[in-house]
């Protein structure tokens, strides 16, 4: 499923008590961001298909008993959306805390320290401690690729790398294995990354990774900075060409 293409018809809705007009087919997230209303996300990335897994962008829609993921919900006429109620803020905090408890996120020794979306999110949501029991799983670092490194300790399973590899690069080297907390990113048939025959070493996965899970080799603490600008550019260029 790709992000909905707007069909042009104009509709009006309310987001956080602000009257907003948009084109039909646009998602709540897109419209909110266009209007400088910030809805936090981790798995969403402009130019990739919608995943809906991080659940940070959940919003309240009047009349709907369930919370809706802003990245996957299309605006409808007269919709009344609340993006930051105390309940939503609390849920978001808990979700990010759970991500910290799930694997071994140690910022002080991480190459992405200071340039990490997970870290930034924790700061933004004012998380000062994690109330859940830590899992401390034993995880591997895949250092077999000659240009990049995969550290499963820092992965949050947002699957941006899987999607960029399959949808933009067209290689589909990466996928997910396992279920629940045992799920993990794999290359080809769960081989070491360096032995993958499909990987083109394009490096797109490294740049879309929100944390220090995917990094260039030879980076030290705090040195890994991701360049994400290529993706909107690529998608735009491909759209105009086709």
């Amino acid at each position: 499923m790709t992000s909905a293409v707007s069909s042009g018809e104009s509709i009006t809705l309310k987001i956080d008590d602000k009257d907003i007009s948009c084109r039909s087919g646009e998602t709540i997230l897109a419209v909110a961001r266009e209007n400088n209303i910030d809805i936090p996300t981790l798995c969403f990335m402009e130019g990739l298909s919608v995943w809906g897994g991080c659940r940070l962008c959940l919003v309240e829609v009047a009349g709907s008993p369930k919370l809706q993921a802003a990245c996957a919900t299309v605006c409808t006429e007269g919709m009344n959306v609340v993006t930051a109620s105390p309940r939503l803020k609390e849920y978001r905090k808990m979700i990010v805390e759970m991500l910290f408890a799930e694997r071994n996120h140690v910022c002080s020794v991480c190459v992405s320290n200071g340039h990490c979306e997970l870290q930034d999110m924790a700061v933004k949501l004012e998380i000062d401690h994690v109330r859940f029991p830590y899992r401390y799983p034993h995880l591997q670092v895949d250092n077999s690729h000659d240009r990049a490194r995969m550290d499963h300790n820092r992965c949050i399973l947002c699957t941006r790398c899987v999607r960029v590899c399959a949808e933009i690069e067209g290689a589909h080297t990466k996928d997910v294995k396992g279920r629940g907390v045992l799920a993990a990113i794999i290359h080809d048939l769960d081989q070491p990354w360096g032995e993958s025959e499909t990987c083109t070493s394009c490096g797109k996965c490294v740049n879309v990774c929100p944390t220090g899970a995917l990094t260039h080799r030879g980076t030290a603490v705090g040195e890994m900075q991701k360049k994400t600008d290529f993706l909107p550019y690529l998608t735009l260029m491909r759209r105009t060409e086709s």
């Binding site: 659940r55 759970m98 991500l99 408890a101 799930e102 399973l157 279920r179 629940g180 799920a183």
Partner: peptide, 11 residues
Amino acid sequence: ESCGKCVPCRV
């Protein structure tokens, strides 16, 4: 049995 796609269910 959680598939691991969304954080609240997985963790």
